[in-house]
Design a binder for these strands. Structure first.
Lengths: 336, 336
DNA sequence: TTGTAGGCGTTATCAG
DNA sequence: CTGATAACGCCTACAA
């Protein structure tokens, strides 16, 4: 392996000079000629700085950890994409940890303590509250992404309430009165807030809240399927459904169609979060599009400011505002 | 930050003793009592070894890079999952690079040269052949995943040909004679081999190959949509279609349904690669399930043997055998 | 069984 | 403008 020394020897100069040329601060003075010779030698030997050594010296790694529930969830693909771009922009790399990983003993926390990563983005919903509070105690840089824990303010979240409201009002404005909601787990911040949005939407449209039209579910295809079945079993089934998540939407659509009912003729359905394949479903799915990419990139921005000590510890959490309706074929006016 | 020294000082012992306790080889002799005291001190101070220092000393990082085209492709989710599990099992971590990343200047190659990662899994299909050959010249550990380059033998691939054959024969055995194939790009190994499988399948079932039933496409929803439209525009359209990829399947299904045709009554369709939501499409999609998870984990195994120098440079590539049919509602017998 | 010394490759500080 | 030196935190011969 080629080191600074080798380059220095070839040029006939001290290693520290080579170091300075590489970390080109601009304002340190080096004779133009030696700089040239050094750069030539670097090319010639194909020298590459050893990052482990640099990391040790600078006590930073320019790597950020990010915990996600699962790579196969398309919603996280967008968040990751935003995070990755922003990280690259600021010279950082992303080390991803999925919760599905076998034998993962929360080594993202270890890595933070062991300085493998400079900071951590926590985007999984499983409850690790104790360890997260510990990070806070240890003053390790981290940011909660799309997640909220009481007592911790450094989070970046979406306006899920607005999204839920938009979805519900869209259905109401199509003339539907019997609007159901398949919620996410009601111990998650997102589940609760989308549900609140649903209630607000009903209120603003002067529709009575009927508790049997609310089914608590998991964020899974199977959950959506079962919950939709329950709704269809009601003596007066809903004519429109707001599904709290894309997986839930898939399950619900399947349940409706398996009963021989047609979307949207018999039942309209709207999903939460926009994904690539929404337009290629049959029928194509009306969705609420949330700024997922932005949430990813803003999370990284926030984490880096914390790492670089440019932020007060107790700044308020960031809400990425915005939510928009993408109308497709799965929702249509209520036909009495 | 707490270091070895701090622990040693607290116990009243030399740092090297502490180091030995941590790297518990088992066969080095340390008085049981001092070991205990050291371990207590470690707990007490909450000491964590600094990985940058360790990496520098050992000239390894226990991190593997992996280049993928895009996080939002569900097929890669399975591969990543397999890779991640195997890596964790062997004490490694995965650093993922998506090709979609902005301002990514192939820094996965740099990272390999700069010893940020110990080896690289190359699973993207974009052509970087020159740089890959360079890696070989530099004797840097890498493995090609689901990809083939002439002159390079360390790859791990699937039996795409078998998969293509299975798909085609399934359709033939349902009585279809007019079987179309929407291929992937025919400059990719996977595209070519699935196409070959298609031809073999036809041959074995004694069905004539008709070139107008072959549409070359990209691995995208749009590509599948356009190619399917072209097939439907034929004077004698096919009654069954083998789509080379899951995205292509989505596009093709949409195209069929947009024409008011029914799947599978008018046209049967089979997709390549099994994904979570295949069963929740409408109709649910018959697919060829390939051992993606295994490909991921085997790739990591192979890479680690190369890193550890346990493998001859020119060993043959590995083919993960196996392909199976998952029959669902999108394929049905041909009705004359 | 434990201590000593040297070095992994880089960079910061100071002196020349 | 360039050189020397020390240090980042850890590990490993070798010596005691």
């Amino acid at each position: 392996m080629v080191t600074l020394k080798d380059v220095a020897k070839l040029v006939g100069v001290h290693p520290s000079v080579v170091s300075r040329v590489i970390n080109n601060d601009g304002n340190l003075k080096i004779k133009e000629e030696t700089r040239k010779r050094i750069q030539q030698a670097i090319e010639e030997l194909n020298y590459r700085p050893n990052l482990s050594a640099r990391n040790l010296k600078n006590s930073e790694t320019k790597m950020l950890g990010m915990v996600i529930p699962d790579f196969s969830n398309p919603v996280y693909a967008s968040i990751i994409h935003g995070a990755e771009d922003q990280a690259a922009l600021e010279g950082y790399n992303l080390l991803l940890y999925s919760m599905k990983q076998k034998g993962l003993e929360k080594n993202y926390f270890s890595h933070l303590m062991e300085n493998r990563i400079d900071g951590l983005l926590i985007a999984n919903s499983e409850s690790d509250d104790k360890e997260i509070l510990n990070l806070k105690k240890e003053k390790k840089p981290f940011v909660l992404v799309n997640r909220f824990i009481t007592g911790i303010s450094n989070h970046v979240i979406l306006d899920d309430e607005l999204g839920g409201k938009l979805a519900t009002k869209h259905l109401a404005q199509l003339g539907h009165k019997r609007i159901a909601h398949i919620t996410g787990p009601l111990f998650t911040g997102t589940g609760i807030k989308r549900f609140q949005g649903y209630r607000e939407g009903l209120k603003e449209e002067e529709i009575n809240f009927i508790s049997s039209y609310v089914q608590e579910s998991e964020y899974t295809i199977e959950g959506g399927y079962r919950s939709m079945q329950a709704l269809l079993d009601l003596s007066t089934p809903p004519t429109a459904v707001f599904a709290s998540n894309i997986m839930v939407s898939l399950g619900a659509m399947k349940a409706i169609q398996d009963r021989g009912l047609s979307i949207p003729r018999d039942i309209s359905i709207i999903g939460f979060h926009e994904v690539d394949f929404a337009s290629s479903l049959s029928p194509s799915l009306t969705t609420i599009k949330m700024p997922l990419y932005e949430m990813g990139s803003e999370s990284v921005k926030k984490l880096i400011t914390i790492i670089q000590g440019r932020e007060e510890e107790n700044e308020l959490g960031l809400i990425i505002s915005g939510a928009s309706l993408v109308v497709r074929d799965s929702t249509s006016p209520f036909l009495s």
